[in-house]
Simulated scan of single mutants.
Amino acid sequence: MAKISLCDRCDFYSHTSFLVCALHPYGPKWGVCSDFVSADLWEPDDPNNYDPAMESECGWHPIFTGKCPECRTSFSRMRLPPEQWRCKCCGWEDDL
């Protein structure tokens, strides 16, 4: 599919391997998309007062890293996050 680099950061991006977005299922033509809407990415309220230790409290989880915290096996980013995280390689499970 003709996905462009901006697709991953667009509100219309589908996050599936079956279609790019709701507006352009096969991707935008000519490498440019006039319908791009920037998704709001998280940023600290005050970047000068950002504490990296806060990130270590939850930043290890595969929903943020895309990898198993035990064996570093990659989880698919083309599917919605599962209700129960389980690594097929090492058997790690989250206990949420």
Rank of each mutant, 00 (worst) to 15 (best):
M1R: 06
M1I: 12
K3Q: 06
K3D: 00
I4F: 00
I4P: 01
I4N: 03
S5T: 13
L6N: 03
L6C: 05
L6W: 01
C7G: 01
D8S: 15
D8F: 05
R9Q: 15
R9I: 10
R9D: 08
D11S: 13
D11Q: 14
F12K: 12
Y13T: 13
H15V: 06
H15K: 08
T16G: 11
S17K: 11
F18M: 05
F18G: 04
F18H: 10
C21V: 00
A22F: 10
A22D: 04
A22L: 12
A22V: 14
A22S: 12
H24P: 01
H24M: 01
H24R: 04
P25V: 14
P25Y: 09
Y26W: 04
Y26G: 10
Y26C: 07
Y26Q: 15
G27V: 11
G27P: 02
P28Q: 00
K29D: 10
V32T: 15
V32A: 06
C33L: 06
C33T: 01
S34K: 13
D35G: 02
D35Y: 13
F36R: 01
V37Q: 07
S38K: 14
S38T: 07
S38E: 15
S38W: 07
S38P: 03
A39F: 12
A39H: 12
D40Y: 08
L41K: 13
P44M: 12
P44E: 05
D45I: 04
D46P: 00
D46M: 08
D46A: 09
P47A: 02
P47K: 02
N48Q: 11
N49V: 09
D51F: 04
P52D: 04
P52I: 11
A53I: 09
M54L: 13
M54C: 15
M54V: 02
M54Q: 08
E55T: 10
E55S: 14
E55D: 10
E55M: 10
E55I: 14
S56H: 14
E57N: 12
C58L: 11
G59C: 05
W60Y: 06
P62R: 06
P62E: 11
I63R: 08
I63C: 03
I63P: 02
F64V: 05
F64A: 04
F64M: 03
T65Q: 06
T65H: 01
G66H: 07
G66Y: 02
K67H: 15
K67I: 07
C68P: 00
C68H: 05
P69M: 11
E70G: 12
E70H: 13
C71G: 12
T73R: 06
F75C: 00
F75V: 00
S76P: 02
R77M: 05
M78H: 10
M78W: 06
R79C: 15
R79D: 15
P81C: 03
P82A: 04
E83C: 07
E83M: 15
Q84R: 10
Q84P: 07
Q84M: 13
W85H: 01
C87I: 09
C87S: 07
C87Y: 00
K88L: 11
K88Y: 06
K88A: 15
C89S: 13
C90I: 11
G91Y: 14
W92Q: 05
E93R: 11
D94G: 07
D95Y: 08
L96Q: 12
L96H: 02
